[in-house]
Structures are given as C-alpha cells and as structure tokens.
Design a binder for these strands. Structure first.
Lengths: 101, 101
DNA sequence: CATACTGGTAAGTGATGACTTACGGAATGA
DNA sequence: TCATTCCGTAAGTCATCACTTACCAGTATG
C-alpha cells in the first residue's frame, strides 16, 4: 500500500512542486520555501508527508537539514504504473483480436 | 499540466480502486460499483473525474456505458515519472562522485 | 551568555471533496 | 404505452487538508 501514500503525497500541487524542486537537486527547507509562494512551515509540513511516503530522504548537516528525492521510492511508483501499463496493453490487444466471445 | 490532474485523480483510494478494476478489463458502471463498498452514483462521479483526466475512456453500448483505461493517459504518467527517475539517478551519481567541492 | 540562524510543531481557519439520497432521462422488451 | 434497467446529476453533509501565525528547540558565532 506504500504506493498509495506516494500518489496521495504527490497529489497536492504545492507538495508536488516541492518534490519537483528536490528532483533538480538536494536542498534545505529554506531554499525550497524561497522558490515557492507559501510559508516555510508549509514547506516543512509537505516535506514531512513526502518523507513518510518514502519519496524524499532527510540528511542533517550542521544546523541545516538537506532533503533529497529517494530513488527507491520513485522505483516503487514506477513499478506500480508499469504493471498497469502491461495490463492496459494486454486488454488493448485482446479487444483488437475481437476476443469478446 | 495534464499529469497533475491524473495524479490527483488517482489519489483518492476509492477512485484508485475504480481505476484498478478497469485495468483488469473494461466494465460498466454497475459492474464496478458491485465490487466496491460505495454507492453507484459515487462510482459514476469517480469515473467522470478519471475520464476528465484522460485516464479512462467511455464507450456506449446500448443502454450501457463501458469504461476502460486509456493507454495514452497512462503513457503520459509514465513519462512524467521516468523524467524524475532520470534526474534522481543523475543526482545520485553526482553525489557519489563527491562533486560537492 | 546573547544573538542569529536553522527548522519542526501547535492551533485555528477556510476551502475542497468524497460520500449519501432523491430525482430525471434515455434505451430495451413486453 | 408501460415497466425495467441503466446511469448521470443535484443538493446536502461531514471530514480532511493545505495554509496561516505564533511559538519553541537546537546549533553556531560575537
């Protein structure tokens, strides 16, 4: 069910923006907040959700906390959609072959 | 921005269940509703969202409406995640190569 | 110690959204 | 035409959630 949390995490536009920012490269909370039209606490809350969903990881560096996307989490999501992709192609093929006996 | 609508569409658990049911094969509204713990109108509303997001397509068959997943929509989502996958691998490589001089 | 950064947490608010029941409307079969 | 089956839509409700401001804790630097 972990992919469920991931999809829900990426559903909120602002949170998706946070994630896409981190995809460009690791950043601190303040750095992410600077590029977004929301407050820093809002970003902090979004990062918590993303971290719980295993989409980003946190690394402490002195007084800062550096967040980065977690490749393993992304892999889970990719596998999820790949599965449906295969099923969809299967169904599509079957429907063409007129197999609705 | 169409992938945004898609992710938001798949965020709701019930709606994701509707989509996953259709991934197994096309079905009518009633058939989908029969396998879920929600009312038929609820399923109907979910299907509308999924259709607007281009994740499913509708085909009229007599008095019935057959819904099926739209492979093109799925392709858009896959491309979206593939892009981040590539970026994530790039960042990962860079971080290993100790490039934080 | 005092100050200035960092950032997580609490509490409150306004909006969104996922449901329900009730209804209407189109196609089939007698 | 009448009844039946299929389904979308309207309206209302309850919960969730994304955001704000205010506050507090930890780490450097004078």
């Amino acid at each position: 069910m972990t992919y469920g949390m991931m999809i829900e995490a990426l559903a909120a536009p602002t949170r998706r923006a946070v994630f896409e920012r981190l995809a460009q490269g690791p950043a601190s909370v303040g750095e992410v907040a600077k590029g977004l039209p929301v407050s820093r606490p809002a970003v902090s809350q979004h990062l918590r959700i993303l971290k719980e969903a295993r989409l980003v990881s946190e690394r402490r560096e002195g007084v800062k906390r550096i967040y980065a996307v977690d490749p393993e989490g992304l892999a889970v999501l990719r596998r999820y959609f790949d599965r449906f992709w295969d099923q969809a192609l299967d169904n599509f093929k079957r429907s063409i072959e007129g197999g609705d006996t």
